[in-house]
Design a protein around this nucleic acid. Structure first.
Length: 903
DNA sequence: GCCGTAACGTA
DNA sequence: CGTACGTTACGGCG
């Protein structure tokens, strides 16, 4: 379509401010955030609306009109125009700018005109398009737009939320208001518009107004015959003619703004997928909305999408000859990606610097298989994202991957921890200049069953191409990483001396797993399930109706409606039913009352369901030798901590007696004598002492006295033996709170004391431990000026939000800046300890072995006769891992189960 | 089937 | 309005 061919034009005109506001109230502000404190509900809802309308209405052009702050010509006519509106909610602020960024990325034009409203922009463009023979679709919740409707101009009015729209055609307007659209402004002038603070004729509503318009044609007709109109309404009209005339003046759309006239200016299709992805990343938008982005926004033909066409150069290989051609005799690096395709089975993406291919392992003949095995087991550097995952996948599929593998995810993580993903596609996109479509949804089984072989092989080819592309993109990513490491030399020490060697240790630990006692597990499961059933029964008997206690939504009905209990703190979906709220609530109730009893059983249900969940989960993940193999993720936590997944063995209960029984299920395995656990005592406070160089805190650790007791005696100015438990626990809360950036408010809430008391407590603490205060203050300021925090080993975490204009984001970043050096340094230290322990145990050829790490604790399986040696290696490895200005203290426990090995 | 939320376990 | 995580169940949405 040419620019002058306006007859085919179908322009979508959106009232940006009105729709953003609508989205803001349709979606919970605290349910959508970018993860850094910026609300994004209006942005999300707006984007959702835009996507839906573009997909369903298929416009060729789009423009979004925004109001500017600071008023318009209408305010000069009537100084109370739009007066009396509530102040803009704070969470809405900033979201308009974000919407504009989204629109820019999507290639959608947005417009503002000084002194005019969005409505005027829309009116100008709609009438111009219609006059040129095109069509216009107006999306607005502002009724003023109704006056623009005609055969060529349709209005979409949101009914519910931002996705359900009513189609206002001339017939629909006529039906709803009893007058044609061009008379709507007359009607509105009579009735008034509360939202704009334009009072109409008292006692005259839309029905009366429409009746008059029908009778006297239009507003001038009504005014001319005002004297003839009988009754109260007629008198009221005569009394308020000035208001009516003012309203008509105010609600008349301006049709002649000076706006770009070339239709090409508004053409759809100038979107940039990369930029959109980046903006969506910033906003923490998920995959669903990305998948739904209409191709037309990016100038792609939706009927024959490019993503359905495999890239021509990608080969699907099944024979040795093809593989030889690909791999050649070269010695350059190879890049690998792996996938278990729902249709194609195990697939391998493989790329040299020049060529790439996808291999379906099940189709390889034996010659080809040998060629592949030789290449991967040979001396060539192999680049992957997540070496342990790729190696384990290869192992399962019968190909060993040598130790020459380079993990680009780990490298990228060290340089910039905290990224959402470090998978091959993410690295290829961020570092290798590649671009991928949103991942297609996983098809339902029923869909798969219905596929013809042709369709199926088409899908497989697309997936194969994508896998090969991802592998290929790892090469430029690897080069970019090398360049960045050159620019940031601090990273190489962390990578070479810590993370890379640790990766091998973690792979070994994964392979070992930890033994569980299946009989004990089964018994525990039965017992816990019995408790769950009992709690369910008892709670159900009290309310006398079917209720799913695991559904917070149903619970809210039971608690606050059926039982009519006082409401708890507000959350986005109503009122909280978390344990803290329920306990508080229970304290307000009479013991023995039905509400009180119900809450007891509910809390019991929660506790036991949680524990049952652990037990059931463990039963699902152990291998045939009853061992559980957690995966330690090395790139998951931005502070440098490890994370444990499938299953998470870093959150096994320990605080309650019943919870601890789960730890009795973890045992020393066949051929081993006992478990040994070793943990650092107060490592974070020791790091605080080290980093702050606070003389008092350092002394506390050197005296060997109980830390919190010592600190409390200073804070409260009493002798150490005069410290009571309340003083100790308050002091302890302050100590740890400080490392998390806790506010006086948070402290008061946690300790259930007044704000003033919390402030006094903190001030008292800082008075005696001034070095801590100075350190905390300066560490945030240093991070603000350098842009990053640093651990004792020089591991960095970049925090751009420290200079954000958004207070919530900035303060959040400040808390992160307080905590990261402390948590991160503790992570550094235990990682060093793990390297030392593993090295020495292997060096001495012991059979004992390290199995788990739980942030400040190591769990070791001890072979017969090795206990004392192992104890010494572990304790030394841990306390000599790094020399702080205070000693590192390590506690050790021995036992047949994890619980017994606690100390 | 995916995804976000609520809740809750750990350090 | 305290940091860092992972897992579960529910329920809205498509």
């Amino acid at each position: 379509m040419s620019a002058s061919d306006t007859g085919d034009q179908r322009i979508l005109l959106i009232d940006g401010h009105a729709m953003a506001f609508r989205a803001f109230f349709a979606l919970p502000a605290d349910g959508f955030s970018d993860g850094r404190g910026q609300a994004t509900n209006a942005v999300y809802g707006f984007a959702r609306m835009l996507i839906n309308v573009v997909s369903s209405e298929r416009p060729t052009h789009v423009a979004v009109a925004f109001d500017l702050p600071g008023g318009t010509f209408r305010d000069r006519i009537y100084d109370q125009y739009k007066g009396g509106r509530d102040v803009t909610p704070p969470e809405f602020i900033g979201q308009i700018d974000l919407i504009m960024q989204v629109l820019d990325a999507l290639g959608v034009r947005w417009l503002t005109v000084e002194d005019y409203e969005a409505d005027d922009i829309i009116a100008t463009l709609a009438t111009r398009t219609a006059a040129e023979g095109g069509e216009a679709l107006i999306v607005s919740s502002d009724r003023d737009a109704i006056q623009l409707v005609d055969e060529k101009v349709t209005m979409l009015q949101p009914i519910k939320g931002v996705t359900e729209m009513r189609r206002m055609t001339p017939a629909a307007v006529e039906e709803k208001y009893g007058i044609p659209p061009e008379r709507y402004s007359d009607l509105a002038a009579l009735v008034g518009e509360a939202a704009d603070n334009l009072p109409g004729v008292p006692g005259v509503g839309p029905k009366t107004a429409a009746k008059w318009i029908v009778k006297y044609t239009d507003l001038p007709g009504i005014i001319a015959h005002a004297d003839e109109i009988p009754g109260k309404a007629g008198q009221s009209l005569r009394d308020h003619l000035e208001d009516v005339e003012r309203n008509r003046l105010m609600n008349a759309a301006v049709l002649d703004l000076d706006l770009p006239t070339d239709p090409g200016h508004y053409t759809l299709g100038g979107g940039d997928r990369g930029r959109t992805a980046a903006v969506f990343d910033e906003l923490a938008f998920g995959d669903t909305i990305r998948r739904d982005l209409p191709a037309v926004l990016f100038g792609e033909d939706a009927d024959a999408p490019a993503e359905q066409e495999p890239v021509a150069e990608v080969l699907e290989l099944d024979g040795a000859a093809g593989l030889h051609d690909l791999l050649g005799e070269g010695a350059g690096p190879l890049a690998l990606t792996v996938a278990d395709d729902v249709r194609g089975g195990p697939m391998l993406g493989i790329a040299t610097g020049e060529a790439r291919a996808a291999i379906r392992l099940e189709q390889l003949d034996s010659d080809a298989s040998a060629v592949l095995a030789a290449a991967l087991g040979g001396p060539r550097e192999v680049r992957t994202a997540d070496v342990p995952a790729v190696r384990s996948w290869m192992q399962v599929n019968g190909y060993p991957l040598g130790r020459q593998a380079r993990d680009l995810a780990l490298e990228a993580f060290v340089l910039r921890p905290g990224a959402r993903s470090y998978d091959a596609e993410a690295l290829g996109t961020e570092l290798g200049g590649a671009r991928f479509e949103p991942r297609p949804r996983k098809p339902a089984d029923s869909t798969l069953a219905k596929e013809t072989p042709e369709v199926r092989s088409g899908h497989v080819a697309v997936a194969a191409a994508r896998l090969a592309e991802a592998a290929s993109a790892l090469h430029p990513a690897a080069e970019e990483l090398a360049r960045r490491q050159g620019e940031e030399p601090w990273a190489s020490g962390i990578l070479e001396d810590l993370e890379r060697p640790l990766q091998e240790v973690l792979e070994t630990m994964h392979g070992r797993g930890i033994a569980i006692d299946r009989a004990a597990l089964a018994a525990l499961r039965e017992e816990f399930e019995g408790f769950v059933a009992q709690a369910k029964r008892e709670a159900g008997a009290i309310v006398g109706e079917e209720v799913n206690l695991a559904s917070p939504k149903q619970l809210q009905v039971v608690l606050f409606e059926t039982l009519a209990l006082p409401t708890t703190r507000k959350i986005s979906s109503g009122h909280s039913t978390d344990a803290e709220s329920l306990t508080d609530l229970q304290e307000k109730l009479e013991p023995g009352s039905s509400g009180h009893d119900f809450l007891s059983w509910l809390l019991r249900f929660r506790e036991m369901s949680k524990l049952t969940g652990y037990v059931v989960g463990l039963d699902k993940v152990h291998d045939s030798s009853s061992r559980v193999h957690t995966t330690f993720q090395q790139t998951a936590a931005a502070t440098g901590r490890l994370a444990s997944t499938e299953p998470n063995l870093q959150n096994i209960p320990v605080r309650t007696a019943e919870g601890q029984r789960i730890r009795d299920v973890f045992v020393a395995g066949q051929g081993y004598e006992t478990l040994l656990t070793a943990d650092y005592s107060q490592i974070e406070m020791r790091i605080m002492a080290h980093l702050s160089e606070d003389a008092g805190l350092i002394e506390a650790f050197r005296t060997g006295e109980d830390l919190h007791n010592f600190v409390a005696s200073r804070v409260f100015g009493v002798s150490p033996d005069a410290v009571d438990p309340a003083m100790r626990s308050k002091t302890k809360a302050v100590s740890y709170g400080l490392a998390y950036g806790l506010s006086a408010f948070g402290l008061s809430r946690q300790l259930r004391i007044s704000r003033a008391e919390a402030t006094d407590l903190r001030d008292g603490y800082f008075e005696r431990f001034g070095g801590v205060r100075d350190y905390l203050r300066s560490s945030v300021e240093t991070a603000r000026s350098t842009g990053f925090t640093e651990t004792i080993l020089g591991r960095r975490r970049y925090l751009p939000d420290l200079t954000s204009d958004n207070r919530q984001r900035r303060e959040n970043a400040e808390r992160v800046a307080l905590n990261s050096p402390i948590q991160g340094s503790a992570a550094d230290i235990i990682k060093l300890a793990m390297l030392a322990v593993e090295r020495r145990m292997r060096g001495q050829e012991l059979d004992s072995r390290m199995l788990l790490q739980v942030h400040d604790e190591l769990v070791v399986e001890v072979a017969p006769g090795e206990l004392e040696t192992v104890r010494e290696i572990v304790v030394e490895g841990m306390d000599r891992a790094y020399e702080l200005s205070v000693p590192l203290e390590v506690g050790v426990g021995i036992g047949g189960t994890w619980r017994e090995a606690a100390h």
